[in-house]
Simulated scan of single mutants.
Amino acid sequence: MSGRPVKHSVTLKGHRTSISLEDEFWRELRRIAEEKELALNALVAEIDVDRGPDTGLASAIRIHVLRDLRRRLAETQIEAR
């Protein structure tokens, strides 16, 4: 497992674009897409629409993954009570 970003192409608004993320982020992003029953491109498109104008797409994806992991952790802690 490498900490170096890996480029993947996605389609946004009918155009191909490359995104560089570490393998761990790609895996979690795919897991989130599966959980939501979305294609990876559809999830990335949602993230793209929600990001601010000063936030890069790769950063927005990392933040989305982090927030999802925090949400899952909080749910696990609530269930454990």
Rank of each mutant, 00 (worst) to 15 (best):
S9W: 01
L73W: 02
K13E: 11
L29C: 03
R70Q: 10
T11Q: 12
L29I: 10
M1Q: 06
L21V: 13
R16I: 12
E24L: 08
A58H: 10
A33Q: 04
E37F: 01
G3I: 01
M1A: 09
L66Q: 11
R62K: 15
P53T: 08
V6H: 07
L38V: 00
R4P: 02
L43G: 04
F25Y: 13
L73N: 12
R27L: 06
I47K: 04
D23R: 12
E34S: 15
R70V: 02
A80Y: 00
L43N: 02
R71P: 03
R30Q: 11
L66A: 13
A80L: 13
N41Q: 10
I78W: 02
I61N: 08
F25M: 09
R31I: 03
V49E: 15
Q77C: 01
E37W: 02
D54S: 13
H64D: 14
S20L: 10
R62A: 07
I47N: 03
D23N: 07
H15S: 07
G3T: 06
M1L: 14
A33G: 02
K36S: 06
K13L: 08
R62Y: 07
E37Q: 14
D23P: 15
S18P: 01
G56W: 04
R81L: 04
H15Y: 05
I32W: 09
R70A: 10
G3L: 14
I63K: 11
R4Q: 09
R51T: 09
V49L: 11
N41K: 08
E35G: 01
S59E: 08
G14N: 11
R31P: 04
R72P: 11
G14K: 12
H15P: 00
E22G: 01
L43S: 02
P5T: 13
A33C: 01
A33L: 04
I61K: 11
S20A: 15
A80C: 05
E37L: 03
D68H: 14
P5C: 08
I32F: 09
A33S: 09
E35D: 08
S2P: 05
V49W: 02
R67F: 11
R71F: 00
E22I: 07
R72H: 08
G3W: 15
L21F: 12
R70F: 04
L57C: 04
I78G: 00
G14E: 09
E22W: 06
E34P: 06
E34Q: 10
H8K: 15
L66G: 05
S9N: 03
E35R: 09
K7I: 14
N41T: 04
G3D: 14
